[in-house]
Design a protein around this nucleic acid. Structure first.
Length: 348
DNA sequence: AATCCGGGGGC
DNA sequence: GCCCCAGGATT
């Protein structure tokens, strides 16, 4: 960025954006509150997640955990259950830990200073800026993917957004156009980025900033933002054993060091004694952003009480059934499998 | 500074 | 198929 850029030359862009936002703000459930708890939850839910995708999760989460005290006193497994299907499950684990931080370190009162909000588990510079600006009149730009896209286009700036310095770089650009009302400014940038200045096929004709947008005037919108590093998916093969008897089946909880942190899953192996009880195999292919999953699910219907109990005793598995399984958070492919596989029906 | 972590939707 | 999304933690 040229160091001769002066705020006085660009501030009108931010003010224009605020005017647009006054009339065009999206009507979202977290827009009519300044409760830092709700804003915080919404910021975590919508990290790397589209509004349409996470809206039900957000509403259900707030309904069950309406305040920080309720969340802090809940079991971690139930928090994970409300995160089921959202992905990035460390968010759920961290959100729960952070709620207890607020109880223990801040006397149950949500911290109002940016530096304090930043200390909460799972809260980074973006989220701290968003919460402090929306709820406490903080003055930090909430630089996210929308900021990268909108600012790189306005300034026709080819700074690589996959560069680890992009956050600081675009924060400086943001300061050039940022007006006094930072809370509304941050939300306006999100709405503009989502509704107008979209990644593909942006609606430049309707954009309140098109006159000020250098990329638009150069007819080079599609060249911004610049992103060099692409994420490529790696293959992952899993074998699960759906071990069941009399309508019950076996599960266990995953660790927190890989995908599907602390979610529940079927056994990954069985003892030799259970091999004769394998009835069928189902192949599941599941695409994630970072993984190409191919899963074999072995349907193991155990008739022997002895073999069943011996296997459980050896491995410390949890016994559940189709109805109770709804109380546990499963990875999406296993969730789908359980819903299709009506154990209770098969054993009537 | 680089890598990892989900799932869904647009095109 | 490829890309992106109200990012953050870990190494």
């Amino acid at each position: 960025m040229e160091k001769n850029k002066k705020k006085s030359d660009f501030l009108h862009i931010g003010n224009k954006l605020l005017k647009w936002y006054d009339k065009n703000a999206r009507d979202l459930p977290f827009r009519n509150t300044k409760d830092p708890y709700k804003i915080w939850i919404c910021e975590i839910v919508f990290q790397q997640t589209r509004i349409a995708q996470g809206l039900n999760h957000y509403n259900n989460f707030i309904k069950r955990f309406p305040d920080v005290q309720t969340l802090a006193s809940a079991e971690e497994d139930e928090v994970l259950l409300y995160w089921k299907g959202l992905g990035y499950y460390s968010r759920a684990i961290n959100i729960h830990k952070a709620s207890q931080q607020i109880i223990n370190d801040y006397n149950g009162i949500f911290p109002s200073e940016y530096e304090e909000i930043l200390k909460l588990k799972g809260v980074g510079k973006y989220t701290a800026a968003a919460v402090s600006s929306i709820c406490f009149n903080g003055k930090m730009p909430a630089v996210d993917g929308n900021f990268y896209r909108v600012l790189s286009r306005i300034f026709a700036d080819d700074f690589d957004v996959s560069n680890s310095r992009a956050f600081n770089y675009f924060s400086q650009l943001a300061h050039l156009i940022m007006p006094e009302n930072v809370g509304d400014f941050n939300q306006a940038m999100m709405d503009l980025g989502s509704e107008i200045c979209k990644p593909r096929n942006p609606l430049c004709g309707e954009c309140p900033l098109n006159i000020d947008c250098l990329a638009f005037s150069l007819n080079k919108i599609s060249e911004f933002p610049v992103k060099t590093k692409k994420v490529k998916a790696t293959d992952l093969e899993l074998k699960y054993y759906f071990v069941h008897r009399n309508g019950e089946f076996l599960i266990r909880q995953r660790k927190d060091d890989f995908i599907w942190k602390k979610l529940f899953e079927f056994p990954l192996e069985i003892s030799d004694e259970l091999i004769p009880f394998i009835k069928s195999v189902k192949n599941v292919h599941h695409k994630l952003t970072h993984k190409n999953l191919s899963i074999e699910i072995f349907n193991v219907e155990v008739y022997s009480e002895e073999a069943w109990k011996a296997f459980i005793d050896e491995n410390d598995y949890i016994i559940t059934n189709v109805e109770n399984s709804h109380e546990k958070s499963f990875p999406k492919p296993l969730e789908n499998y359980i819903q299709k596989y009506d154990v209770s029906y098969k054993f009537l």
